[in-house]
Simulated assay, not measured.
Amino acid sequence: MADNKVNPIDNAMGLLRLRVVRGINLAIRDVKSSDPYVVVRLGKQKLKTRIIKKSLNPEWNEDLTLCVTDPNESIKFFVYDHDVFSLDDKMGDAEFDIKPFLEAVKMNLQGVPDGIVVTKVKPDRENCIAEESSIVWKDGKVTQNMFLRLRNVECGEIELQVQWIDLPRS
């Protein structure tokens, strides 16, 4: 008998490669420092960076890939301080609305000059973007670099690079 489970990749729009570049001025949760890592969530997907020991300005430079099925879902980021003998401490959270990015992906950009700014996303009360962020057409791909200001914490930002990966259609 055939199994009727739906493969999430079947209704995927494409893949989002997130490079979690670094944390900036993160909150202190241990004595004088923290051992931060980032958890990224999109729908039921959950990915995690490695832990960087004793750093308030960690450099992860880690690529995490998410499968995008719903353009209305935002990507959520949670920064934690790793603790050995107790629950990990929260170090803030942030959110990224992928709609403006997906709008740029849908445009037919073949033949457009390399490095052209497709659109800009401005910081506002609805997003966690710390400064204006450009969505750029570069090397045949739509990319965006951004700084997200962490919420529910006294300080801290995370730097991200986002890149779209089309799925081959059968």
Rank of each mutant, 00 (worst) to 15 (best):
D88T: 06
D81Y: 10
G111A: 11
V136L: 04
L160D: 09
N57V: 10
V39P: 09
T143K: 09
D88H: 14
Q45L: 02
L87C: 00
V38Q: 05
I158V: 15
V121P: 06
K120S: 15
L148S: 12
A104K: 08
K138W: 10
T49M: 02
V121R: 04
R149V: 01
D114Q: 00
L160R: 08
I135R: 00
A104T: 14
V112F: 08
T143N: 07
S86P: 01
L66I: 03
E103T: 09
H82N: 14
L64Y: 01
E157W: 14
K53S: 09
K54V: 02
Q110H: 06
L66C: 04
M146L: 14
M107H: 03
V40Q: 00
F101H: 02
D97V: 10
D88L: 06
K141F: 14
L150G: 12
D63Q: 01
E62N: 14
A94W: 05
A104C: 14
L42H: 11
C128I: 05
G140D: 04
D93F: 00
D63P: 11
L87R: 09
G156N: 14
K122F: 15
D89P: 03
E154Y: 10
E59C: 08
V105C: 04
R151Q: 07
F77V: 05
I129F: 13
L42A: 10
V38Y: 05
Q110S: 15
W60K: 01
E59S: 08
N108T: 01
G115N: 07
I135Q: 02
D97A: 11
Q110L: 06
M107E: 10
V38C: 12
G92L: 15
H82Q: 14
I75S: 02
I135P: 04
P123A: 12
